Computed example of a mutant assay.
Amino acid sequence: MKVKHILCLISACFVLHSCVVLSPKKYKALLATQDSLTTRTGTLEAQVSRLQSDTAKLHREIADLQGQLAAAKDSYNALSDKYSSLNNNLTSTTSKVNQLSSDLQAREARLKEVEEILRKRDAATNALKEKLQKALLGFQQSGLSVDIRNGKVYVSLTDKLLFPSGSIVIDEKGKAALKQLAVVLNKEPDINISVEGNTDNKKVINLGQIKDNWDLSVLRATSVTRYLTEVEKIDPVRLTATGKSEFQPIDTGNTPEALAKNRRIEIVLTPKLDELYNLISK
């Protein structure tokens, strides 16, 4: 707009000068000046047009960059929130892992203690079995056996070794076997003793006070228990007497041999595991 104003002023000057008589030389100089101004005006207009175009382009680029910046800020905020959430999860997970690791170490230490106690139990059980086998060697041909089951020593005595048929009174051969057993048990005060009476599945007939196999199994167990405590002086606190009647047979057959196996007294010897029980109850 300023260029146009300049041209208008120049034109006005020409009009004013037209009223004055100019020499040819001045006239030519004036025309040259006019041509120069026209040329410069065209150049300036072109520059203005370019500048306007560049300005519009820069405005578009700035708007585009502002949009990208806004999108970047949104992405940053989203990532920041996600990072914060992940960081919180990581902290929580790390805490849980540390707690689980601590619990695992405690459990492993406890497991080692239990394994060590069980190792001692097994060693004690095996040693006891060997002592009993040596002490009772002379009776093993008469229906006595010693074996280990579930960490316990089982001394099994058939009824023919201990009692006359249908009786609850221990005979001399049975007393001799129990005496040898008591020698070992009195030297092992940390062994608990359970005396279990077992019968076959034949019904008891005409035995007076003994009404059935329950009575027979219980009374035979208590007879053995009384002998061990009253005669062989084993501490009664260590003993338990139980009757299992016919319901835990060794052999489910119905042959005379199978029935004879089932008529037995089992003396179950268990090492005291106070350490283990105390550990488990923690």
Rank of each mutant, 00 (worst) to 15 (best):
M1I: 03
M1N: 05
K4S: 00
C8W: 11
S11M: 03
S11N: 10
S11P: 01
C13R: 01
L16D: 05
S18L: 09
S18V: 12
C19H: 03
C19E: 03
C19W: 10
V20N: 00
V21Y: 03
V21T: 03
L22I: 00
L22V: 00
A29E: 13
T39M: 12
T39C: 01
R40F: 06
G42P: 03
G42R: 07
T43W: 07
E45L: 15
E45S: 11
E45D: 13
A46T: 12
V48M: 11
L51P: 00
S53F: 03
D54V: 13
D54Q: 15
K57C: 01
R60S: 05
E61Q: 12
D64C: 12
L69H: 00
A71C: 05
A71M: 09
A71K: 13
N77D: 02
A78K: 03
A78W: 07
D81C: 00
Y83S: 11
Y83Q: 12
S85E: 10
N87T: 13
T91I: 15
K96N: 01
K96M: 06
K96G: 08
Q99T: 00
L100A: 03
S102H: 07
D103M: 13
L104N: 06
Q105L: 09
K112N: 15
K112Y: 09
E113Q: 10
E116H: 08
I117F: 04
L118Q: 13
L118W: 04
A123N: 14
T125I: 12
E130V: 15
E130D: 14
Q133I: 10
Q133V: 10
L137C: 12
F139A: 14
F139G: 01
Q140S: 05
Q141P: 07
S142L: 15
L144C: 15
V146I: 15
D147P: 10
R149G: 02
N150E: 09
K152I: 02
Y154N: 09
S156M: 08
S156F: 04
D159R: 13
F163T: 04
F163R: 06
I168C: 06
V169M: 06
E172F: 12
A176S: 08
L178N: 12
L178G: 05
K179W: 06
L181M: 09
D190F: 02
I191W: 11
S194Q: 04
V195Y: 08
V195N: 04
V195D: 15
T199E: 09
N206I: 00
N213H: 00
W214Y: 07
D215K: 06
S217H: 11
R220D: 12
A221R: 07
V224D: 02
R226W: 07
Y227E: 07
L228G: 01
L228Q: 13
I234W: 03
I234F: 05
T240W: 03
G243Y: 00
E246H: 06
F247M: 07
D251H: 08
N254W: 04
T255K: 11
T255A: 14
E257I: 08
E257F: 07
E257Y: 14
A258Q: 10
L259H: 09
L259N: 15
K261G: 08
K261E: 09
N262W: 08
N262E: 11
N262F: 07
R263M: 13
I267L: 07
I267V: 06
V268E: 00
L269A: 08
T270N: 01
K272F: 09
L276S: 05
L279T: 10
I280W: 08
I280T: 02
K282F: 15
